[in-house]
């Protein structure tokens, strides 16, 4: 079994409107069910985190810019770590990720253990 990082990207600008608690709840359910499904298969290693939309990008010579959404339309919205036999299986497991139903995408990367 190997471990894989799943990075969720989506367009942050689309979702500026403040959501009501009920809407938030409705938005969260597919995520909770999907993570629960991965965990029920014993494939979830780390529930990861969601990321806020604001950020800073630091470049050489003390250049700090707001971002990263200014430059990359598809900003990282969150990540988790899963367990799978191969990258193909990890990709297969990502097919049900709720990010896909709101126009986002999932990037699957193999974790390389540090020795």
């Amino acid at each position: 079994m190997k471990e894989f990082l799943l990075v969720f990207r989506r367009d942050f600008v689309l979702n500026e409107v403040q959501s009501s608690p009920e809407q938030l709840q409705a938005m969260m359910k597919p995520w909770q069910d999907w993570m629960g499904s991965l965990a029920a298969q014993n494939k979830l290693v780390n529930s990861g985190n969601r990321l806020a939309s604001d950020g800073r990008v630091i470049k050489p010579n003390s250049v700090i810019t707001d971002g990263p959404y200014v430059e990359i339309k598809e900003a990282i919205g969150g990540y988790i770590i899963i367990r799978a036999n191969s990258i193909d299986e990890a990709a297969e497991l990502s097919k049900d990720c709720p990010i896909l139903s709101i126009g986002g995408n999932v990037e699957v990367r193999t974790l390389v253990p540090m020795d």
């Binding site: 359910k29 909770q32 069910d33 993570m35 629960g36 965990a39 014993n42 979830l44 529930s47």
Partner: peptide, 13 residues
């Protein structure tokens, strides 16, 4: 109950 199980599995499978 479903959401509680979803969380529980994330703590301990």
């Amino acid at each position: 109950i479903l959401q509680l199980y979803n969380k529980l599995l994330q703590i301990e499978y």
